[in-house]
Amino acid sequence: MDFATFLIQILNGVQYGFTLFLVASGLTLIFGIMGIINLAHGAFYMIGAYLSFWLFGMSNSLWVAILVGLPIMVIFGYAIERLAISFLYKRDHLYQVLLTYGLILILNEMQKILWGSDFYSVPVPEFLSASIPMGNQEYPVYRLFVSLVCMIVAAGMYVVIGKTKLGMMIRAGATNREMAQALGINISRVFAIVFSLGAALAGFSGMIDAPLSSVYPGMGDFILIISFVVIVIGGIGSVKGAFVGAMLVGLADTFGKVLVPEFSSMVIYALMALVLLWRPQGLFGRPS
């Protein structure tokens, strides 16, 4: 592998990692803070991608699509939290799995009813459609742009969780729910906010990803399972773990496809198994 190819693979891996991070961070926060395993989280990613396709069709601008799509995702997440998830807080994980599995079936079929089973694509915005030459290959600017935006979002999350009042409530809720309630934190509101923001993050990821991958049925299922691998590697409830896990999985998957193409789909699972051997609670998880 020459240097240019190597560099391109690194950039691809990091960009994929960032995409995964946006989905996995919401999932891990919902696990960590609300104690909910939400299988429908991948569907949010899919809905984001379809929204960007649909809104792009009407506005002819990815930016308008994202600006309009994001509030829709927040409202949608809020509605799902109130109408379905809020019944699950005191229930066993088993019922959480089943109910959110039922949600997936519904959301996947809604997608088919609204947009059918075809594959769609969303064009890359004009001014980002250029490519940078690298050795004898080229690297699309849009991919760099996606990485940059995700980096800004990740930094923003870091600030919100670490420095703001909302972040303090989120951390308090994650550490000790009863204590947080005793301190006068309205925990059910924190839950609703976390869930809506998690849905928006996953949706956002789907929106900016749409020009890179195509928009297709079942794309949410795929990203959900990879996000599980990310979280298992990083440790449940840890945003830092989600970040490191996402980067590891992104790079492992990208390099796996180049180096061992015939086993590429197994590489990330092997990585997961290795991490579990070493640290069953994940890299940044608290031991149980």
């Binding site: 696990f31 395993i37 994980h93 799995v97 399972i225 599980f228 691998v229 979280i231 298992v232 449940i236 789909s265 197994m266 699972y269 997961m272 198994a273 579990l276 069953p280 609670q281 994940g282 149980s288």
Partner: peptide
């Protein structure tokens, strides 16, 4: 060796590994 949500996710992930294979 794991419990709770971990167990659910790990069994799912390994099963998907077979699926993709």
């Amino acid at each position: 060796r794991t419990t709770g949500i971990y167990f659910i996710m790990i069994t799912l992930a390994f099963a998907q590994m077979f699926y993709y294979y």
